Computed example of a mutant assay.
Amino acid sequence: MSTEYILETQELTREFKGFVAVDKVNLKVKRGSIHALIGPNGAGKTTMFNLLTKFLPVTSGKIFYKGKDITSHKAAEVARTGMVRSFQISAVFPHLTVLENVRIGLQRKLGTSFHFWKPESSL
C-alpha cells in the first residue's frame, strides 16, 4: 500500500447468496484527486460505497484508507478516521426545522423521545 494513495482496494468482492455484486475490484485513489464511480443500475456502485464505508462486510479482498487496513473495521471506526458518505436521498420533514429533523433521527436511533417546545411569539 503506497502512501501516494488515500484509498485503495485489492480484489474487493461482495457476494449476496451466490450473486456477485462487486467482483475483485482494484481501486486506487490519489490524495487530492476527485473520482467518480459510474455505471448502469445494478452495476454495484452503491454496494461498492457501502463496502468502502463498512455499511456492508467484505466477502473477500482488502480496503486500505490512509495506508491502514480497514477491512475488518466497523462503520463508526471508519467514520472516525475521516471517511464518511452522504446519502443521495434524505428523508426530511420540510415543515420542521433542521434541529427538529435531527432530533427525530436521534429518537429513532436511540429509542428515546423528544418534546418540542416552541416559545410563544411576543406581539
Score class of each variant (00 low, 15 high):
27 L>N: 05
69 D>K: 07
55 F>C: 08
100 E>A: 11
49 F>D: 01
83 M>T: 07
97 T>F: 02
87 F>I: 10
59 T>I: 08
47 T>H: 07
3 T>N: 14
112 T>L: 07
96 L>D: 08
36 A>F: 09
104 I>Q: 11
7 L>I: 11
77 E>K: 13
67 G>L: 05
23 D>K: 14
88 Q>I: 07
115 H>S: 11
92 V>H: 09
17 K>R: 13
87 F>T: 05
112 T>G: 00
108 R>L: 14
1 M>G: 14
50 N>G: 10
67 G>H: 06
45 K>S: 04
99 L>I: 12
49 F>S: 09
77 E>P: 01
16 F>C: 07
109 K>A: 13
9 T>W: 07
17 K>L: 08
37 L>E: 06
8 E>V: 04
33 S>E: 15
119 P>E: 14
90 S>I: 15
73 H>K: 14
104 I>D: 06
82 G>E: 08
74 K>E: 13
30 K>Q: 13
48 M>H: 04
47 T>S: 15
21 A>F: 04
12 L>S: 01
11 E>F: 06
80 R>Y: 00
113 S>G: 03
25 V>T: 03
11 E>D: 15
84 V>Q: 08
62 K>Y: 04
66 K>M: 10
70 I>Y: 01
23 D>M: 03
114 F>Y: 12
85 R>F: 02
39 G>C: 02
79 A>I: 06
15 E>L: 11
13 T>F: 08
95 H>M: 09
118 K>T: 13
81 T>M: 15
114 F>G: 03
32 G>Q: 12
63 I>E: 04
57 P>D: 14
37 L>A: 04
42 G>T: 05
21 A>H: 06
75 A>Y: 05
28 K>A: 13
77 E>H: 06
20 V>F: 02
25 V>P: 07
57 P>Q: 14
58 V>I: 10
32 G>R: 10
83 M>F: 12
10 Q>P: 00
45 K>R: 09
123 L>A: 13
121 S>H: 11
